[in-house]
Design a protein around this nucleic acid. Structure first.
Lengths: 159, 159
DNA sequence: CAATTTTTTCAATTGATTTTGAAGGAATTG
DNA sequence: CAATTCCTTCAAAATCAATTGAAAAAATTG
């Protein structure tokens, strides 16, 4: 899980905390987590905050217990959707906007060189891809289903 | 592109090199790349090697020219497929195998505790997810099309 | 509301990754 | 095949990210 989580751009220690919670029957307190993962109190606190922020861990209310206890969210697909919506969408959206800016800049050139025209065309391709990606992520985040069908054309076109 | 490439686990400088090649009409030599990206000769050399290794840049043979020149692969989907096949597949495959190992270990326990049984069940869920992911990636790498249809059940189940 | 316990924060440290550039190795040319 | 140019390697340096733990803040209890 650590590696997987790391690939998705989160700290692998955060992934380890989640895994511990996910495999445990009972909700765990911060110090139990620290003990069992070997992380410092600080790291655990930050990890838990991040997990909460992404809705990947919940606070469990245990009546009569002082310390907070945490429990893992088990709806993994829900989590993935949320992350796509909040993070990947922003990433791709930003890229898309940058492509657009670059295109605008190039289009504003009075007498474009061959080089300019070429770059413009390539950037339009990237913009198209980013736009496609953006709406795919959007759809996935909304519906929880993803289909690459609308992409068929792009796929075969090659170039 | 740097950010996007970075997210996918490559060095962002590698992404910058590719972008430069992608936007350029003519193939570029290593020192032209170094000059225009501000990277050192070493970094460019390594970046180009990596791009070649992933089939994302080609050596262009310019007759009568001494230096090697490089050109960007423009079939982006092809590249993505290759990366999925060679890298994501390995990542998810390894995770899947680890889940399986853990399951085997737990199943070998003579008198499992409640905790053991719980972990076992959760691990089976993760294994299922990883297996599903693995075959999705496999299919995408082969066909270039991805559909999450077979996942519908998983998605709605929630838990 | 003071005492105590728990949690968070953050500056300093540690650790990991990326980049540099000089040295050595290949390739090309006359 | 020597001279030259080009490319790669790799140890050291620089940069960037994660972790620690003590101090501050917040929460809980009697």
């Amino acid at each position: 899980m650590g590696d997987l989580v790391d690939f998705w751009g989160f700290k692998s220690s955060t992934g380890r905390i989640w895994t511990l919670l996910y495999l445990s029957t009972a909700p765990l307190s911060a110090d139990e987590i620290a003990e069992r993962t070997g992380l410092s109190t600080g790291a655990v606190s930050m990890g838990l905050t991040e997990l909460e922020r992404w809705g990947v861990a919940d606070r469990a209310v245990l009546p009569g217990v002082r310390k907070r206890h945490y429990r893992a969210e088990t709806d993994i697909w829900g989590v993935v959707r949320r992350i796509f919506r909040e993070r990947e969408l922003r990433l791709v959206g930003k890229a898309r906007d940058r492509f657009q800016e670059a295109i605008d800049l190039l289009e504003a050139i009075e007498e474009p060189t061959e080089e300019d025209r070429h770059a413009l065309e390539r950037l339009r391709g990237l913009l198209g891809l980013a736009t496609l990606g953006y709406s795919m992520i959007e759809t996935f985040a909304k519906v929880g289903t993803l289909s690459l069908e609308p992409i068929r054309g792009v796929l075969s076109r090659g170039r």
